[in-house]
Design a protein around this nucleic acid. Structure first.
Lengths: 132, 132
DNA sequence: AGGAAAGATGACGTGAACGTAAACGTAACG
DNA sequence: CGTTACGTTTACGTTCACGTCATCTTTCCT
């Protein structure tokens, strides 16, 4: 397994975040780097989680929401009750994400329409170097 | 034209926001309610803008980004330079939104995969009332 | 041994996006 | 004519997600 342990600095370069951010995520229990003496070492698991965290952020989820969602990707030997709870939560998030995608598609279509209008106006103003 | 002017209270109920939010958006120059004495009256234009604002927020845009995007939807007699600037900005946003949609689709697919895995585990634990 | 480089902790600061409380205006209602 | 409802401004408070010191170890290098 490629379970290279990475230092905080390596993580920062790999994911373009600051040390503060990684420590903050650990404090919020989103990451669980192991310790070698004082120093944090980030595992393959932490890297996978961080990738999901950053993605979640881009979709506008809060860190707390993301923390709960992460459990789904790392369900292991949970009890049924917990598993079912997590599953239900995931269903909710899935619905939200699909709704967001649909709305996004709609917004994209509208924006394109507006841009077509703008392009037409630009063309009238300067036919030689119009937008396209 | 259905240009009914709405009070702040009516707006709040129609869009599920607080008065504070509407005043805040006005301060940030996202909305421009007219005044009847002291009181704000929100026009059809304000309603259209607010709808776009709330949508932009769901997509994770900041109010400042939204403010700039709104100009595109309300381009009227701008000069070419301004129009071209707005158009360029819109292109950038469009690209971002399309990228976000693609990533969202990917995330949805992955989440579904994880949920299928979870559903299978739940089925093993309790075949009678499994998740579907 | 001496010093830079990397990492740690702790505490205070910051920007965005509002929430909340105080104090005031005004307009209709019983 | 008082009070209830709705609206206003001003101003300080709050949450989230970090940024930014200051200070202290640990480690590596020459």
């Amino acid at each position: 397994m490629t379970d290279r342990k990475m230092t905080i600095r390596e993580m920062c370069e790999a994911f373009d975040v600051t040390p503060r951010t990684l420590r903050f995520y650990e404090a919020k229990e989103l990451l669980f780097p192991i310790r070698e003496g004082q120093k944090r070492l980030f595992t393959k698991r932490d890297r996978a989680r961080l990738k999901l965290i950053l993605r979640g952020k881009r979709f506008g989820f809060s860190l707390e929401e993301i923390r709960q969602l992460l459990d789904l990707y790392y369900m292991d030997d949970s009890q049924e009750t917990q598993l079912r709870k997590t599953y239900t939560l995931a269903e909710k998030h899935l619905a939200e994400m699909e709704a967001q995608r649909d709305e996004l598609n709609e917004a994209i279509a509208e924006l394109k329409e507006q841009m077509a209008w703008g392009a037409k106006r630009l063309k009238e103003l300067a036919p030689d170097r119009a937008a396209g």
